[in-house]
Structures are given as C-alpha cells and as structure tokens.
C-alpha cells in the first residue's frame, strides 16, 4: 500500500469520480487557474493544488474558474444540483462562507424540506479551515460547528488521506448538500489510501466516527488536524499511566453519538479538543450531548479544550498560543483527570 498525501488523495478522488460520472462538474476560484488559456499549459489546480490536472483531463467545460463571487457561484452550483447535476464547488476558505452564507443556510439547507423531497441537492462545497500557517483572522477560522448548527447540511472534517478520499467519494455520491472541510495543515500529511481489489477508493459512510486508538481511562474526541495532536498527547499520557481512547467523529453533522457514548461508557471521562469556537462550538456541543445522554457513565465533569474566544491572531507566537496542541492536551488531561 503506497503512501499518499492528504491533498493528493483528494485530487485522486476527484479524478476518479469525474471519470466515472459526467454529471460531476467542479467550479471555484482559480481551480483550473491558467488552464484553457491559449498557449498555456500552466494549471494551478486551486491554491492548494487539489484540483490539479482536472481541467486538462476533463476540459474547462467541466472545470470552471469562476469570478470571485461566492454568493453567485455557490448559488449557481445549487441551481445546477437541483436539476440533477453533481457540482463540487470550492470555496477557497471557510471564512468566505460569510459571503455566501445565505445560499448555504437558506437555499442549500432547506430546499429538500421545502420541496417535500422532490428536489435533491447532490452538491459538495469543498472548503478549507484551520489556523497554524499565519494566514490571519480571515483565512484561518474553523467554522464547522457554525454550518453544522443548520439542519439540512452534512458537514465533514476528514483527518487522514484515507478518510479524505473515502469521505469525499461518499459526499459526491450523496443526494444532500455536503460541506466538506479540509484542514490546510493536513494537505501534506501522508498515509495509506484504502482501495478495494479493483483499485477503487473505498467509500466511507457519512455519520460514522472511528476509533483512532482504544484505551480505558479517558476519551479524547478530536477532528481534523486535532486528531494528530490528540495522538501525540496520548503517547505522552500513556507513559504517565493514562490510557486514552481517541475518537474521530469524521462527520460533524450528523454526529455519530453511538461511538461517543460507547467510548464514554468505557472510560467515564471526556476531553474534547477542537479548533473551533470556544463558545457554542463543536466542543460545547459534544460536552452537552454527552452530559445529557451519558451522564451516568461520567466519573468526572467533561472538559473541552479549544482556542480562546478571540479572532485568530497573525503573529507566530500568538497563533501558537491560540491553538490547542498536544502539550496543552497533556496538561489539561493531567490537571482534570489524574486519579
């Protein structure tokens, strides 16, 4: 099994899916990026290269560079999806959801409900999230919980190349709008790809979490780039005698409550690490749900570890102070859960 990067896993999935189904089109800012210009074979493939090679292979009729107008190109994708096309729309940073929020929370999220199921919206919005690269307050946010709070949207946050590929494949096949959030810090992460005997990417169902590792003393819940931090922290905590179980929900909405309850039933302790909002974010949601649904299993109060309730700062030291890290997880776990 060959290792592949997170970004290349996504690229490979887009290639495979587009080759198999010509109702798939992709659109976004600079996703072809030069391809299609006469006498130019330059192809940017998006600012992170995820759509590289698609325009050359499938043509600029299926791979569209859009004007910088998120409202209208997300809306256009929605309209096309309502007729049965399967657009994969790239919104370069989830911070730009502010521009097209109406299309996401009012049009995409509600059309199935309001049309009494007669209109399906097989639409994927690919976007990036996460801090750590000095992109500043408006290109670094983690807004997964914000969109997950709206019924009618599925929200996915993959943490590994295999999950990125498998979840994207399922998202493209889904008849519902899916917000697919790629952490910028993960594009270079390498790992194996899960393929079947014929070399096809194995799809991963939405709404199913995974055990990253099993343990008995503490349930660590983490998504996206925080999964790696949780793993590093668990290694250190193991030396200190605390065996952590790590759950990666993979899908933020709908959330796999079963795996969370199952884990907490075993460990009795919960620490949620998340890069999103300190207030009314994903960590708060998990703590609240577990407190309500698995209170009897809890041996101590559940804890969340998030950035402070501030905008993402730019400077290196400040940004590092802002982000949860494996050191902070270790410190937090020992402080709250040492026997």
């Amino acid at each position: 099994m060959t290792a592949i990067s997170f970004g290349d896993a996504l690229n490979r999935t887009l290639h495979d899916c587009m080759a198999a189904d010509d109702s798939i089109i992709i659109a976004g800012e600079d996703i072809a990026g030069g391809a299609g210009i006469e006498d130019s074979d330059v192809e940017l493939g998006g600012v992170f290269g995820v759509t590289r090679g698609l325009a050359a292979r499938f043509g600029t009729g299926r791979v569209l560079d859009t004007p910088i107008t998120e409202s209208a190109f997300v809306g256009m994708g929605l309209g096309a999806a309502a007729t049965g096309l399967r657009p994969v729309i790239e919104v370069m940073f989830c911070d730009f959801f502010g521009v097209c929020f109406d299309q996401l929370i009012n049009q995409a999220a509600k059309m199935r409900f309001l049309s009494n199921d007669r209109i399906q919206l097989p639409l994927v919005i690919r976007t990036t999230m996460g801090a750590g690269d000095g992109s500043g307050a408006m290109h670094s946010q983690s807004l997964h919980a914000l969109v997950a709070s709206v019924p009618g949207l599925r929200v996915v946050c993959p943490a590994t190349p295999a999950d990125a590929a498998g979840l994207l494949k399922t998202s493209i096949a889904s008849p519902d709008p899916v917000i697919f959030m790629e952490h910028k810090g993960l594009y270079g992460l390498t790992g194996p790809l899960r393929e079947d005997e014929d070399g096809h990417i194995v799809p991963i169902p939405l709404g199913k979490g995974r055990y990253v590792r099993r343990g008995t003393d503490l349930t660590l819940v983490a998504t996206g780039a925080m999964v790696q931090e949780a793993e590093k922290a668990a290694d250190i905590l193991a030396v200190r005698g605390m065996r952590c179980e790590i759950i990666d929900p993979r899908t933020i909405s709908p959330l796999d409550m079963e795996i969370l309850i199952e884990s907490v039933a075993g460990t009795g302790r919960l620490l949620v690490v998340d890069e999103g909002a300190a207030f009314a974010g994903f960590a708060d949601a998990v703590v609240s749900k577990i407190s309500q649904k698995a209170f009897a299993f809890l041996k101590s109060a559940p804890v969340s570890l998030t950035p402070p309730h501030t905008p993402v700062p730019y400077g290196r030291a400040l940004e590092a102070a802002y982000l949860p890290s494996h050191e902070k997880i270790v410190e937090c776990a020992l402080r709250h859960f040492s026997k």
Binding site: G75, M76, Q107
Partner: peptide, 15 residues
C-alpha cells in the same frame, strides 16, 4: 437569492 439559482438552472440546460 433565486437569481443565482436560476443561473445554475441555465447552466445545467447548457451543460
């Protein structure tokens, strides 16, 4: 909001 959706309906026709 329906104006960009309608543009998408047109896109689908053309596609």
């Amino acid at each position: 909001a329906q104006v960009s959706l309608g543009t998408g309906l047109g896109f689908a026709n053309k596609y």
